[in-house]
């Protein structure tokens, strides 16, 4: 856009309605639309439309063979009034998310902050130690070996040798242990992209800010964190929050792999498992669409609420 066209646009914009001007701008920038088109078309097909479609299907009874039949709120009424297991699933999902989301967020932030003052080589090594579990595929299955239900499991074996247990515990088949264990394993894999983002954010903070803060009477590292570091890296804090929250709702796969499906007496049954049960196995598409849409609302609601609160902090 040269200065000449800029000037011409500025003059002529006054003579046009908003729609006319938008249309003119759209034509002028048609390359931009060509550039985003391939990505956006696929993105709409595989992400945007499915969300809308599941909202639509959630008001129907549909089995993929016959035409969908409109039944309005029946699916939702059934979910909340007639499906006891769904209520367990909601409760478990919320407990899971409420513990893993904030904990993994705070762990990522504090570990990133603690290792920030290490020498670069050392920092790279420690970063790898903390980050590796999140990228290593199914390595979390090792927890099943560690907590294996027979006496050959390392945890059982060690606790028995120390005399704390007299018989092996079936950790992942026990109603009171399965959920806490799954949460621990989920946390173990949760230092991911948000963690890297925090490390990078801390690295880019202008060091002279700390100098100025020291002159202004900042006395220790905690004050430094609160008054200088956190306000400066707010965009990273927002990004990390979004990833941690979304992640905290998405640990269903780990639970299935460790606790089996269905888990013992539904003790670790989450909405994701319920969805898999009705969508992937019973082919009740309408009903499972209602479940997906509720899950969508929970995730997006939690994210919007938290980002809204974070954007207010320090203002």
């Amino acid at each position: 856009m040269s200065q000449k066209t800029e000037a011409k646009r500025a003059v002529s914009r006054k003579d046009m309605t908003k729609a006319q001007w938008t249309w003119k701008e759209m034509k002028r920038n048609k390359t931009a639309y060509i550039m985003i088109a391939p990505f956006m078309i696929l993105f709409f097909i595989f992400t945007v439309i499915p969300v809308v479609l599941s909202l639509f299907l959630s008001f129907t009874s549909f089995n993929m063979l016959e035409m969908p039949k409109f039944i309005f709120m029946d699916n939702y009424i059934r979910l909340f009034l007639d499906d006891d297991i769904f209520i367990i699933a909601i409760k478990n999902t919320l407990i899971f998310a409420a513990i893993t989301g904030p904990t993994s967020y705070l762990l990522s932030l504090f570990i990133a902050w603690f290792i920030n003052e290490l020498a670069p080589k050392m920092r790279a090594l420690v970063t790898l130690v903390f980050y590796a579990p999140s990228i290593s595929g199914q390595v979390y299955l090792i927890w099943q070996t560690l907590f294996s239900g027979d006496a050959y499991g390392w945890v059982n074996g060690t606790l028995m040798r120390l005399g704390i247990l007299d018989a092996p515990v079936l950790w992942f088949q026990n109603e009171s242990y399965v959920m806490p264990l799954c949460i621990i394993v989920a946390l173990w894999t949760s230092l991911g992209t948000a963690f890297l983002s925090f490390i990078a954010g801390l690295q880019t903070i202008d060091k002279s800010l700390y100098e100025a803060a020291a002159v202004d009477g900042i006395r220790n590292r905690w004050q430094e964190l609160w008054y200088v570091t956190l306000p400066t890296m707010k965009p990273q804090l927002m990004f990390g929050a979004v990833l941690s929250i979304t992640g905290s709702f998405g640990f269903g796969g780990i639970v299935t792999a460790l606790a089996g499906f269905p888990s013992v007496n539904y003790a670790a049954h989450t909405i994701m498992h319920h969805l898999d049960d009705y969508g992937g196995q019973r082919w009740e598409v309408g009903y499972s669409s209602a479940i997906s849409f509720l899950l969508f609302l929970m995730m997006i609601g939690a994210n919007m609420a938290v980002t809204k609160i974070l954007s207010k902090v320090g203002q």
């Binding site: 499915p50 599941s54 499972s288």
Partner: peptide, 10 residues
Amino acid sequence: MFTATVTGIA
């Protein structure tokens, strides 16, 4: 802000 699980059925 949401995972692919949501769009799986559709």
